[in-house]
Design a protein around this nucleic acid. Structure first.
Lengths: 260, 260
DNA sequence: CGCCCACTTGAACGTGTTCAAACGTCGTGG
DNA sequence: CCACGACGTTTGAACACGTTCAAGTGGGCG
């Protein structure tokens, strides 16, 4: 099956490669000074390896540290009522999925690994010190939390006002763009290590219906999705089916067009 | 109809009353120093009066100022596809609904008045100066945006995994608690100036179904809701029907129980 | 080899939608 | 004072999208 239209790659060349994943992530948004970079690199960080499907923090916890994803993916969720689960977000390497614990003592949801994960744990006091000393870093992280809010809103719009097929298509577009931005996508293909059950719980549908919707998308030659690998055969078609407009991801820090 | 159980009032006595709504709001979360309070009070603010049902900022705008709600209520929303609308949040006096514009140039959604509104507009550069000079104020505002994220997540859980009746009950519980916290509720009664159509668009249901669900809640003697006035007749019953647990609102800045 | 887990399929069912019409109330203008 | 229009609300009936339950398939890994 030939690719009818390939996804746009918005990946930007990063001026100065850096091995620290947090530096790399923030660097793509603001220009950090070298002192700021070293301040981040000097963060005391305890690295741990976790298996797939393992909670990192749970609802009700009072964490004293934050977790930086170094390798592997994770997701955040909450269980309500009798075992119904809502997934709020999928997280890729370089992200700090529980940054909020720095400001909100009690976790109102849980964080769980999707794959085997290598994660760095940084104590709150060390992070606070970093933020106090580096306002630009603080600003960049604050901005990240606001972008996450924008993603939440887009998911809300999907959950509230889009049908199942549109939701699935939309999620695939979003994840492709986000994974491409960190160099994890290529030629319409990317690893997206989630099961149909997790897909369903993120999109507010049953897993049976998630399965049927995937078949429909496949039947329209838009995607294939098997064993955690997503292939987009027709980006234009998928974006149209998903009503996808990437503006809400705020990927271009400055050059956002359409003046007021 | 006698009140079978009254909502808990979590309103805290504020040590030092202040007329500036932003000071009042932040004061209830952190202890501000007097220099910080005056820094906020000295913010150059342009006050405007707006009518009901009027957009303050629109998707696509590039605002150069933020808006502080002084009187009246507002909501944020986005239109997707052919006129389907999703409402993301309702805002009460003292809140800064478009704080994100300080960090994200382009609005990815719109902000609209629900009632006649008195709003203060503060230029971004003035706000940035305030945040640079008062880290505690910055922290408090950051915390507010994180609480808003928590509310978004709870709404997502509702949109994805709760039925219509539960969603309506849950929203009423949430709004009651939030409005009570700013002194706008009393004895199970509060102004909640939204139409059934807005209720439906917030909860991802049709307005016809919103109407029928309200009748059901009323039939169970849990609430009455007419002409923008919400009365909760049975708080326990409503909270149970709405699967409502206020933990996600993070109202107790410090004393959040259940150690890790 | 056998088990477990993720995925797949069918059929009945249910919650919520859509469409269309009518009602009530409030504010405006004749 | 009444007529009118606008808007929010209410009602009924047909319909659709997605759920639920239950059984079965298939692949990966101990």
């Amino acid at each position: 099956m030939l690719s009818q239209s390939t996804p746009p790659s918005l990946r930007r060349q990063i001026p100065e490669a850096d091995t620290h994943p947090l530096v790399r992530r923030l660097q793509s948004v603001v220009d950090l000074g070298s002192e700021e970079r070293t301040a981040i690199r000097d963060l005391p960080m305890m690295v741990r390896e976790l298996r797939a499907d393992q909670d990192i923090v749970r609802e009700g916890d009072h964490p004293s540290q934050c977790c930086i994803l170094l390798e592997g993916m994770a997701f955040r969720y909450k269980i309500i009522g009798e075992g119904r689960r809502q997934i709020f977000a999928f997280h890729a390497p370089g992200e700090v999925p529980d940054l909020q614990s720095l400001f909100l003592k009690r976790m109102d949801h849980s964080l769980c690994t999707l794959t085997p994960v290598k994660a760095g744990f940084v104590r709150h006091d060390a992070l606070r010190e970093l933020l106090a000393g580096c306002p630009r870093v603080a600003g960049a992280l604050w901005r990240e939390t606001l972008i996450e809010s924008a993603i939440f809103r887009e998911w809300m719009a999907g959950l509230g006002r889009r049908d199942a097929l549109t939701r699935v298509a939309h999620l695939f577009c979003e994840m492709y763009i986000r994974l491409d931005a960190i160099g994890r996508a290529r030629d319409g293909k990317t690893e997206l290590p989630i099961t149909q059950n997790e897909l369903a719980d993120a999109l507010g549908i049953s897993d049976v219906h998630a399965n049927r919707t995937l078949q429909e998308l496949r039947g329209r030659n838009l995607i294939t999705f098997e064993r955690g690998a997503l292939t987009i055969h027709d980006w234009e078609g998928l974006a149209a089916a998903g009503e996808f407009d990437p503006a809400y991801l705020h990927q271009n820090p400055d050059a956002e067009s359409e003046a007021v």
